[in-house]
Amino acid sequence: MVSKADWEIAPIRIDPDTTEKLFFTDHEWDTIEAAAARIMPTDQDPGAREARVIVFIDRYLFGIAYLYAAADGSGFLQLADKDAHAARARNANMQRLYREGIHELDKKARELRAPSFKEASEQTQDEVLEQISGVPKPIPVSLTSREVYYSRLQGNTDEGKSFFDTLCLHVRQGFYGDPVYGGNKDQMGWKTVGFVGPKSLKDTMDGTYSTAEFFIQEYDWEDLVPGFKHSQDPTSKQEQDGQ
C-alpha cells in the first residue's frame, strides 16, 4: 500500500475565474451559485459570488483529486488505496446529496411560482432556503438576548449533515478557506472579516507568515500576574528581551 506519508502531489492549480465545470451541469452550477449568494450575500463587501465559492464547491464535488492541497500549495495530494477508497465512497454520497438538493431547490421554487430556483427573485430564493432549512431565516445577533448551548465535537466535517447544512458549511469553506482550493478569491473572505492570512500556504511553513505583530508588544509578567517576581523564574525575561 502507499502510505499517507508518500501520497504523490499532482501539480494542478485551480483558477478561481474558471467557468469550466468539472462536476456540475450548467443548470446545477447556476443554481448553487445563486443559493451560495443568498447564504453569503454581497453587500459593501464581496460575497460568495465574487469570491468564486462555486468553483470551490465544483472542484470538491468532482472527486477526490482536490480534497487535500499539498502542504506548500504546489498541487493536490493523490490519495491511495484504502484512504482513497473511503474518500471516494464519501464523495459519491456528497454528489448524490447535492443532486437531490438542487432538485429540491427547483421544486420548492416552482411551488412559489418561479420557473426555477436560479430564476427566482432573491426574496423567493430566501423563502426556499428558509423552507428547506426547517427554521426561520436567521435574525441578527443580539447583545441583549441570552442563549445556552451544549458541547460538541471540535472540528467540523461535512458528514451526516442535511443538504442545507452541508451547503452552508461549504459556502463558509469556499469563502474563508485558503484560496488554493479555488474560492476566497484574492482573499476576499479574509479581508471581509479582518483575518490577516498568509500569502501562500508555503509561507506558513518556514516563519515567513507571522502573526507576532498581533501579540502584546510591551508587557511585564509581574504586572499581569500579581505576586509573581522575576526572581522566581530567571528565564521569564528571555522573550521580552528578545523583542
Binding site: R38, M40, D45, L129, P140, Y149, G189, F195, G197
Partner: peptide
C-alpha cells in the same frame, strides 16, 4: 475564519455575514 467559534452564529444570510464581520 471558517470555523471560528461563535455559538449561536446565524446559519446563513446577511445576519451571518454581519456576525462574522
Amino acid at each position: 475564519a471558517i470555523n471560528a467559534i461563535m455559538p449561536g452564529r446565524p446559519a446563513w444570510g446577511q445576519a451571518m455575514k454581519d456576525a462574522d464581520r
